[in-house]
Amino acid sequence: MRINKTVAFAMTFCAGLLASPLIQHAVSEARADAPALPATIIDLLAIKHDDLPKTANAELNARPLVITDHATVGIQSGNVAKHIHPQTDEIQYIIEGSGSMWLGNERKDFKPGSLIIIPKGTAHAGSIVSNGPVKAIAIKIPPQGKTDTVFVD
C-alpha cells in the first residue's frame, strides 16, 4: 500500500512537470490572441468640451480613451449631479478648470493638477465651477457597468 502511494505521488509529480510547459504555452498563446493596447500619444489639452460627445447627463461630455478588462480611462468635461458608483472605484485627474465638488459629505476644492480618489459607494458631484468648463481624466476600476451610476440627493 505504501509503495502504491509513493508510485502514485511520483507519477503525479512527473505529470505535473510535463504538463507545466504545455499550460504555460497555452496561456501565452491566449494572451497573444488578446487585442493589445495601441501605443499612442493623446494631446489632452487640445481636446475641448465641444469636441467630446454629449452624454445622458445634459452638462457632461465624455469619451473613452482606453478600455481594458480591468479598467477604463476616459476624458470628461462638464458637470454631473451627485451620484455613487456601487461597484466601481474612480480616480479623476483635473486637467483644466477649478471649483469645488462634493466628495462624500464634504465640499472639496480642486484645480488643475488635483488628483481625486473616489472609492466605490462614495457620493460625488460637480458643484461650483469657478473657472471652466472642468476637464478631467476619469479612471474607472473595474470598468463601470451601464447600471453602476446611482443618483442621490
Score class of each variant (00 low, 15 high):
Ile67Asp: 15
Arg2Ala: 04
Pro38Val: 07
Ile42Thr: 14
Lys54Trp: 15
Gly104Tyr: 00
Ser130Ala: 05
Pro112Leu: 01
Ala71Asp: 09
Thr147Leu: 08
Ala123Arg: 00
Leu37Met: 14
Arg107Ser: 10
Val7Thr: 10
Phe13Glu: 03
Leu115Arg: 05
Glu106Met: 04
Val150Met: 01
Ile137His: 03
Ala138Ile: 10
Val134Met: 01
Asn105Trp: 00
Gln87Asn: 10
Ile47Val: 14
Ser28Met: 03
Cys14Glu: 05
Ala136Ser: 11
Val7Pro: 15
Gly99Met: 06
Phe13Ser: 04
Val66Ser: 05
Asp33Pro: 10
Ile91Glu: 01
Leu45Cys: 08
Ser28Val: 11
Leu44Met: 10
Ala32Gly: 11
Thr68Ile: 03
Ser98Phe: 02
Val150Leu: 05
Ile94Glu: 00
Gly113Ser: 03
Ala26Arg: 07
Asn57Trp: 06
Ser20Val: 06
Thr149His: 03
Glu96Thr: 15
Leu115Ser: 08
Leu65Gly: 11
Pro21His: 02
Ala34Arg: 10
Asp148Phe: 02
Ala81Tyr: 07
Ser100Thr: 15
Ile75Cys: 10
Gly74Glu: 01
Lys135Pro: 15
Asp148Leu: 01
Pro53Ser: 01
Glu29Trp: 12
Thr68His: 07
Lys54Asn: 13
Ser98Ala: 08
Gln87Thr: 11
Lys82His: 00
Ile84Leu: 03
Ala8Glu: 10
Ile118Pro: 04
Lys120Cys: 06
Pro119Ala: 01
Arg31Ala: 14
Leu60Phe: 11
Ser98Asn: 05
Glu96Arg: 08
Ala26Asp: 14
Pro86Asn: 03
Leu65Val: 13
Val73His: 13
Leu103Asp: 11
Thr122Val: 06
Ile47Glu: 09
Pro35Asn: 01
Arg63Gln: 11
Gly132Asn: 07
